[in-house]
Amino acid sequence: MHGPPGPRQNLHDDPPRLIICHRWIMANNAKWAQMNNRAVIHPAVKLRHIRAFLDIATQGSLSGVARAQGITQPALSRTLAELETLLGQPLFLRQGRRLVLTEQGALFRRHAEAALQSLEAGAAALRPGSGGTIRVGALPTVATRFFPRVVLRFRELRPQTLLAVETGPHFYLMRLLREGAIDLMIGRLPGASEMAGLSFDHLYEEDIVLVARAGHPLAGRPLPRMLAESPVILPPATALIRPQVEEYLASIGLAGLRPAIETVSLALGRGICLTSDALWFISRGVVADELDRGLLAELPIGARFLSGAVGMTRRQETATPGLPALEEVARDIARQAPGSWRPDQSSPAEA
């Protein structure tokens, strides 16, 4: 701290107005630091500061948060200014009519969300009949068969704990994980460049398959011809399995093949395949039930390298109550015999 600041222009209001900083905070910072050299956060930081900051970070607006909290916008602006003064860092910048987090604000948000979640989980644990909430992101590769079994087993063991599940593409769930909006992500191993501050717990290996509707008119023809003459569905460019599929296509002379559609959605991919001659590259776990029921057929591609690790990704500092129990259930189901939840892996593609 460099002494108490005078009135400054408020970057958080529109139109600009003056904020009177709490001079007693600044005047006592040096004294407090001398008395308590072990603590990092100023004792004047209150829960209302943290909640206001997190709500503003989510909405990007003071006016909407003020209405939701039933307070005036100037009062909310003062709360935010107090927090910035206590932390000694600017948390937001104005871009147009929105407030966006500074680098310091984004860093503080991750830790503030985790701390608030831990407090709420602790309070929930004190209420009879409440087991708290675990928020999980499930990627498509586990959402159809593996994770439903985890959910049902976990509910038998911890019926009072609520599982709040988000589904979506990899980049979306990774963002939620880093922001603290989910506690755990289950799916394929993220790229090495994405793993800073995260840990990955391997569960099993899963291959990528090429599927089509049963009775496809080109079945039995050379695969390059089938791919050249049929509409092809590829995973989106942001999907973790896309680079492997492209490497395979290049290995059979079809580098740069333009797909008709890009998706990993079971509902969309299945619907297209069942009503057309489309061929779909997708993780086996997404279409496992359709293959078992004979709605879709797997086409032999003869490539063993089209596989990858599936597991659990979490922030290293996450300490959500009940999460270790959920992870152990997932490990236990992954260790079960393949026939108990996974399709037979000895398919023509692996022969």
Rank of each mutant, 00 (worst) to 15 (best):
H2S: 12
P4K: 06
P5R: 09
G6A: 13
P7D: 05
P7F: 01
Q9N: 12
L11I: 13
H12A: 09
P16I: 03
L18N: 11
I19S: 00
C21S: 10
C21E: 09
C21R: 08
W24M: 14
M26T: 11
A27C: 12
N28K: 11
A30D: 12
W32N: 06
H42W: 09
A44Q: 15
A44W: 08
V45L: 07
F53Y: 00
T58K: 02
Q59Y: 05
Q59K: 01
G60Y: 02
Q69E: 12
Q69S: 13
G70V: 06
P74M: 02
A75Y: 08
A75H: 10
T85D: 14
T85H: 08
L87W: 07
Q95R: 08
G96M: 01
T102S: 13
Q104D: 12
Q104S: 14
R110A: 15
E113D: 12
A114M: 15
L119Q: 15
G122C: 12
A124K: 01
R127A: 10
P128G: 13
T133P: 02
G137H: 02
A138H: 00
V142I: 07
T144E: 09
R158Y: 08
P159D: 14
Q160K: 11
T161R: 06
A164C: 13
A164N: 14
V165F: 05
G168M: 06
F171D: 15
F171Q: 14
F171E: 14
L176V: 02
L177Y: 01
R178Q: 11
A181C: 08
G187M: 00
P190F: 06
A192I: 05
M195S: 12
H202T: 12
Y204K: 04
I208Y: 05
V209Y: 03
L210A: 14
V211P: 13
A219E: 10
A219Y: 15
A219G: 12
A228Y: 03
E229M: 03
P235W: 02
T238Y: 02
L240H: 04
R242F: 02
R242G: 05
Y248K: 09
Y248E: 00
A250T: 10
A250I: 04
R258Q: 14
R258K: 13
I261E: 08
E262N: 15
T263E: 04
S265F: 02
G269R: 00
F281P: 07
S283Y: 05
V286I: 14
E290D: 13
R293S: 11
G294I: 01
L295Y: 10
E298R: 01
P300R: 03
A303K: 02
A303D: 10
A303M: 03
R304K: 06
F305D: 09
L306Q: 03
L306C: 03
G308A: 13
A309E: 01
A309P: 06
V310Q: 00
T313D: 00
R314P: 07
R315N: 11
R315M: 07
R315F: 07
Q316D: 15
P321K: 03
R331N: 07
A334N: 04
W341Y: 05
R342H: 05
S347K: 01
